[in-house]
Amino acid sequence: MSKLDQEDRDDMSAKQFAFPKQRKEPLEDASHVRNAIARFNQVQGVTDHERDEAWKHIRAAAKKFDVEVNETDWREIGKGKK
Protein backbone atom coordinates (compact mmCIF):
# COMPACT_ATOMS: atom_id res chain seq x y z
CA MET A 1 0.00 0.00 0.00
CA SER A 2 1.33 3.37 -0.90
CA LYS A 3 1.71 5.62 2.12
CA LEU A 4 -0.38 8.78 1.95
CA ASP A 5 0.95 11.79 3.77
CA GLN A 6 -1.37 14.59 4.85
CA GLU A 7 -0.67 16.62 1.71
CA ASP A 8 -1.60 13.64 -0.50
CA ARG A 9 -4.82 13.13 1.48
CA ASP A 10 -5.66 16.82 1.24
CA ASP A 11 -5.23 16.69 -2.55
CA MET A 12 -7.64 13.77 -2.92
CA SER A 13 -11.25 14.35 -3.88
CA ALA A 14 -13.77 13.51 -1.16
CA LYS A 15 -15.20 10.94 -3.60
CA GLN A 16 -11.99 8.93 -3.19
CA PHE A 17 -12.79 8.10 0.45
CA ALA A 18 -15.15 5.45 1.79
CA PHE A 19 -16.45 8.09 4.22
CA PRO A 20 -16.25 11.27 2.09
CA LYS A 21 -17.70 13.71 4.65
CA GLN A 22 -15.16 12.64 7.27
CA ARG A 23 -12.43 11.96 4.65
CA LYS A 24 -11.78 8.57 6.24
CA GLU A 25 -10.55 5.39 4.56
CA PRO A 26 -9.01 6.39 1.20
CA LEU A 27 -9.79 4.10 -1.73
CA GLU A 28 -7.01 4.97 -4.15
CA ASP A 29 -5.79 1.44 -4.94
CA ALA A 30 -6.42 -2.24 -4.17
CA SER A 31 -4.32 -2.17 -1.02
CA HIS A 32 -6.25 0.79 0.38
CA VAL A 33 -9.54 -0.94 -0.44
CA ARG A 34 -8.47 -4.06 1.49
CA ASN A 35 -7.37 -1.84 4.38
CA ALA A 36 -10.70 0.03 4.36
CA ILE A 37 -12.54 -3.28 4.67
CA ALA A 38 -10.25 -4.50 7.46
CA ARG A 39 -10.63 -1.26 9.44
CA PHE A 40 -14.28 -0.60 8.61
CA ASN A 41 -15.63 -1.46 12.07
CA GLN A 42 -12.98 0.72 13.73
CA VAL A 43 -14.26 3.95 12.16
CA GLN A 44 -15.87 6.08 14.84
CA GLY A 45 -18.27 8.99 14.71
CA VAL A 46 -20.36 7.80 11.76
CA THR A 47 -23.98 6.72 11.51
CA ASP A 48 -25.26 3.43 10.15
CA HIS A 49 -26.53 5.35 7.12
CA GLU A 50 -23.00 6.68 6.53
CA ARG A 51 -21.67 3.14 6.89
CA ASP A 52 -24.21 1.93 4.30
CA GLU A 53 -23.00 4.59 1.89
CA ALA A 54 -19.34 3.89 2.65
CA TRP A 55 -19.90 0.19 1.99
CA LYS A 56 -21.25 1.07 -1.47
CA HIS A 57 -18.11 3.11 -2.15
CA ILE A 58 -15.89 0.27 -0.97
CA ARG A 59 -17.73 -2.30 -3.10
CA ALA A 60 -17.40 -0.08 -6.18
CA ALA A 61 -13.69 0.48 -5.53
CA ALA A 62 -13.19 -3.24 -4.93
CA LYS A 63 -14.73 -3.99 -8.31
CA LYS A 64 -12.59 -1.31 -9.96
CA PHE A 65 -9.35 -2.64 -8.44
CA ASP A 66 -10.33 -6.34 -8.70
CA VAL A 67 -10.43 -6.92 -4.93
CA GLU A 68 -12.47 -9.93 -3.82
CA VAL A 69 -15.12 -9.07 -1.23
CA ASN A 70 -16.97 -12.00 0.33
CA GLU A 71 -19.31 -9.94 2.49
CA THR A 72 -22.45 -8.54 0.89
CA ASP A 73 -23.13 -6.16 3.77
CA TRP A 74 -20.78 -4.34 6.16
CA ARG A 75 -22.56 -5.97 9.09
CA GLU A 76 -21.03 -9.30 7.99
CA ILE A 77 -17.43 -8.11 8.37
CA GLY A 78 -15.60 -10.30 10.87
CA LYS A 79 -18.49 -12.72 11.29
CA GLY A 80 -16.91 -15.49 9.19
CA LYS A 81 -18.67 -18.03 7.03
CA LYS A 82 -21.46 -20.11 8.50
Score class of each variant (00 low, 15 high):
residue 11 D to Y: 07
residue 72 T to K: 15
residue 53 E to M: 09
residue 79 K to W: 04
residue 29 D to E: 15
residue 78 G to N: 10
residue 12 M to F: 09
residue 61 A to S: 14
residue 12 M to S: 08
residue 75 R to Y: 04
residue 62 A to H: 11
residue 54 A to P: 08
residue 42 Q to E: 12
residue 70 N to F: 06
residue 54 A to Y: 13
residue 10 D to V: 03
residue 80 G to S: 10
residue 1 M to E: 11
residue 36 A to H: 05
residue 32 H to M: 13
residue 44 Q to T: 04
residue 29 D to C: 06
residue 68 E to D: 12
residue 16 Q to A: 13
residue 20 P to G: 00
residue 1 M to H: 13
residue 66 D to F: 02
residue 4 L to A: 03
residue 15 K to G: 03
residue 10 D to C: 13
residue 78 G to H: 07
residue 42 Q to M: 09
residue 80 G to H: 12
residue 63 K to A: 05
residue 11 D to S: 15
residue 81 K to F: 12
residue 40 F to I: 00
residue 14 A to I: 14
residue 23 R to L: 11
residue 13 S to H: 11
residue 71 E to I: 03
residue 43 V to F: 03
residue 11 D to V: 00
residue 27 L to V: 02
residue 56 K to Y: 06
residue 21 K to Y: 06
residue 54 A to W: 13
residue 65 F to I: 01
residue 66 D to T: 04
residue 39 R to M: 12
residue 62 A to E: 10
residue 5 D to G: 09
residue 42 Q to V: 05
residue 16 Q to V: 03
residue 26 P to R: 00
residue 50 E to N: 12
residue 65 F to D: 05
residue 55 W to E: 12
residue 33 V to A: 05
residue 14 A to R: 15
residue 82 K to I: 05
residue 82 K to E: 09
residue 43 V to Q: 04
residue 5 D to P: 08
residue 73 D to T: 03
residue 51 R to C: 05
residue 22 Q to M: 05
residue 58 I to Q: 13
residue 68 E to R: 14
residue 12 M to K: 11
residue 56 K to A: 12
residue 29 D to W: 05
residue 45 G to V: 02
residue 58 I to K: 13
residue 34 R to G: 04
residue 18 A to P: 07
residue 25 E to N: 13
residue 14 A to H: 11
residue 71 E to P: 07
residue 70 N to Y: 12
residue 69 V to G: 08
